[in-house]
């Protein structure tokens, strides 16, 4: 489902000063897997996520996502790739002037889905995330956890094969985070591949899923049923 082959990405920082974000990274994530990507800030987690959505291209190496080689993917086909990927943000990124229902429907509207499909699919996914009651609420009327559920619903409404979550519990308290993780787990069980970048040690330790640890742009650990870290 996801394959990186000797991927290197560096950022220019004025003059000859370069920052290596990922260095010769090779890894593979299979269909239906649940993977944590952990590591301190600046370890390359964000770059990893941005490469998967083709917001950025690697300087070197190849990336395959959902059967597409991103290096040779034409710019106009990038939207097609992104329809296979759901993206959950740390800060939810809900549109403040739209209701819960409209926020979720928006993701379908802008890729040209018809009214009938939207009206069928949105209630389904709102039920999945447990927000049927709140479908007419505005985002500011919701708690952080509920907002993140809306964000997950929006990411999943198009039935993507891959769900990328960038610190989805970063802005939530521990008990709310558990709810979100249960939700992501449920989505994973429907067959979607979930990749989650996180700092949250408790969550990683309690889920016992595959853990890929990055440090200074290198994979220092790749462990099935792992925990957040050795000494910490």
């Amino acid at each position: 489902m996801i394959r990186l082959q000797n991927v290197t990405k560096t950022y220019k920082r004025g003059g000859d000063d370069e920052v290596v974000a990922l260095k010769d990274v090779s890894l593979e994530v299979n269909k239906g897997e649940f993977v944590f990507v952990v590591g301190p800030s600046g370890s390359g987690k964000s770059t990893f996520m941005k490469l998967l959505t083709r917001e950025q291209l690697p300087d070197d190496g190849n990336i395959w996502v959902a059967g597409k080689n991103l290096a040779s993917l034409r710019a106009w086909k990038v939207p097609v790739l992104r329809r296979e990927i759901g993206y959950v943000f740390q800060d939810f990124k809900l549109l403040p002037n739209k209701s819960v229902y409209e926020n979720v429907a928006f993701a379908l509207e802008v890729i040209g889905k018809g009214r009938r499909e939207i009206d069928k699919r949105v209630p389904e996914v709102l039920e999945l995330v447990g927000l049927t009651e709140k479908s007419r609420a505005q985002p500011h009327e919701l708690s952080g956890g509920q907002q993140q559920r809306v964000s997950v619903a929006r990411a999943f409404v198009n039935n993507p094969r891959i769900l990328l979550c960038d610190e989805p519990t970063g802005n939530l308290d521990p008990s709310t985070s558990i709810g979100i993780m249960k939700l992501l787990d449920r989505i994973n069980r429907t067959g979607a591949t979930v990749v989650m970048a996180t700092h949250d040690q408790h969550i990683v330790d309690s889920m016992r899923r595959r853990v890929i640890e990055l440090e200074n742009g290198i994979v220092v650990r790749d462990q099935t049923r792992g925990v957040y870290g050795y000494g910490n």
Binding site: P79, R82, N158
Partner: peptide, 10 residues
């Protein structure tokens, strides 16, 4: 930015 990430065409 949301539109881009959910795959809205350019």
């Amino acid at each position: 930015s949301i539109m881009r990430l959910v795959g809205a065409s350019n």
